[in-house]
Amino acid sequence: MSEARAGRSRLSSWLYALRTTNPPPGGPMDPVTLWIVVTRAAVLPMTLVSGLVAALLAVGAPGFDAGLLALAVAGIVLAHVANNLMNDLFDAQAGSDTATYPRALYAPHPVLSGLVSRRTLITAIVLVNAADLVILAVLAAARGLPVVAFAVAGFVLSVAYTAPPLRLKKRGLGEPDVLVVWGPLMVGGTYYAATGSITWPVLLASLPYGLLCTTVLMGKHVDKIPFDAPQGIRTLPVILGERRARAVTLGLMVAFYALVAGCVLVGAMPWPALVAVLALPRLAKVWPHFRRPPPQEPPAGFPVWPLWYAALAWVHVRQAGALLVFGLAVGAVLSPVAG
């Protein structure tokens, strides 16, 4: 195989893993593809969008520092990587992740599949958290203790999501955890790192995208009801029941648009953020699927089965989040003109 062809093959492998959380079927796995799969890098864009929301709200604010902003965005992305790795470690230790549980079915579990050893997984967790700690030290030196408060709160909630003794996921609190982390903590913390201040309008503006991220987790937990309920894992969808949980997830999707409009009305977001409504046709396509039970068999070529509602929610989040970022970017460009 020529060098150029080998390069194209590797790139194709990386893109496939980034799109599906799985390695390409039937092909060898290079180290980059391996770690894309192990870290579940396919879902990291959710965190990157939270960072971009904060960045676009912060541009032009008093005290704005682009270098500190870049560090903060890198920090929250690394925190998401650490969270994914820790969830896999703690769930496997607790016995909730098994070879027949969805986590090991929609994508290879790092340890259960043999991709990496438990020791390697722990080493990766330590290294990623150490890198985040260095970033935190730099940000704290520049912005003070509030940065530490944001980071520690995010770390505690991330660990408590699956780790004993709290195991928030098991108590119906995992979904609110995601709303708080991907909303006020990530957006608010990144904004504070970039500007050295935080305001209530910024925290309000953090909620719409936090809700979108919560819809993905709600969908995932609806998919896992048949697996979670027998184990006593009482996620919010287990508590609500499948039909009500699907209805609540749709309600959260609608609430995203209502919150964006509310943020524009009170001045927490610039008016171009309303371009997010262009994702409503995508919601209209997702809507009927959430109104009925999942199919008995996966559609042809569907890569993340038995996840169904999570994938549908992600399709909506991807477009709605991208449009929100675009609208905020237009607002950031127009604001000096408006001022």
Rank of each mutant, 00 (worst) to 15 (best):
A193K: 01
A55Q: 04
L139E: 05
L312S: 04
A310R: 11
T120H: 07
V180S: 02
L307T: 11
A332N: 10
G95R: 12
E297R: 15
P165N: 07
V325G: 13
L127M: 09
Y209E: 10
V156N: 01
M46A: 12
L204Y: 09
P299N: 13
W314V: 15
A279W: 01
A255V: 13
T214R: 05
I36K: 08
Q319M: 11
V59F: 03
P24N: 12
P24S: 15
L179G: 10
L211I: 15
G241A: 04
A160S: 10
L115H: 10
L157C: 02
A54F: 00
K224H: 12
P62H: 02
L250K: 13
V187F: 00
S206D: 08
L252H: 08
V159A: 14
P146H: 02
A279Y: 08
S96Y: 07
G339D: 05
E3W: 07
P226C: 04
P108R: 11
E297C: 00
S50P: 13
L207Q: 12
I125A: 03
R318H: 12
Q319C: 02
V330P: 13
R244F: 02
L278P: 15
D88W: 06
F290A: 10
A284I: 05
L240M: 06
A104P: 13
L139C: 03
M253N: 14
G189N: 04
Y16R: 13
A193Q: 03
A140G: 06
